[in-house]
């Protein structure tokens, strides 16, 4: 069943007709062409699809596009402002917090949201804060370091 939704994504308002069953992740990737949001599992386990919905991190594969109606979504493409990397993005590069880069957009969104909630997290709080995001390349070591570096620079 088609539904009209209005969603603000990375500061731009979009009005689209979507199927009721369309996932937010598919809407972002296929309708809006924002392919920086990745899909890594079928079970809301990996967190590669994490975006911010009204500033709260959410797994976009677990939300329907219609649920985003009237809300504001930030994807990895919208994390930098005015051409300037978000401190979390800069820290991921500085600390080598990514290898293949596939989990990275969701991971960075989670870290950004964690720091938003808790600007000075302990190592344990960081590790718990990214507990919903899986990375198979880095062993998390440099991701946690990147989160610490970002926390210092915010």
């Amino acid at each position: 069943m088609p539904n009209e939704i209005t969603v603000t994504v990375n500061g731009t308002e979009y009005t689209d007709t979507v199927e009721a069953r369309q996932l937010l992740s598919d809407y972002l990737r296929e309708t809006l062409g924002l392919t920086g949001t990745h899909l890594g599992c079928d079970t809301s386990s990996c967190g590669a699809c994490t975006v911010l919905v009204d500033g709260q991190s959410a797994k976009s594969c677990t939300l329907l596009a219609v649920q985003a109606n009237g809300h504001s979504v930030t994807t990895i493409e919208g994390l930098a402002t005015d051409g300037e990397l978000h401190p979390v993005q800069a820290a991921f590069r500085e600390e080598h917090g990514l290898q293949c880069g596939f989990c990275t957009p969701g991971m960075m969104i989670s870290v950004a949201q964690l720091l938003d909630r808790n600007p000075n997290p302990t190592e344990t709080e960081i590790r718990e804060g990214i507990g919903g995001n899986l990375c198979r390349c880095t062993g998390y070591h440099n991701i946690v370091k990147a989160a610490q570096t970002a926390a210092r620079s915010i």
């Binding site: 392919t35 920086g36 990895i76 493409e77 930098a80 990397l85 990514l98 880069g101 596939f102 990275t104």
Partner: peptide
């Protein structure tokens, strides 16, 4: 590699 990957511009 990082600038494209941390801004969501990698093509998989």
């Amino acid at each position: 590699e990082d600038p494209r990957l941390i801004t969501g511009k990698g093509t998989y």
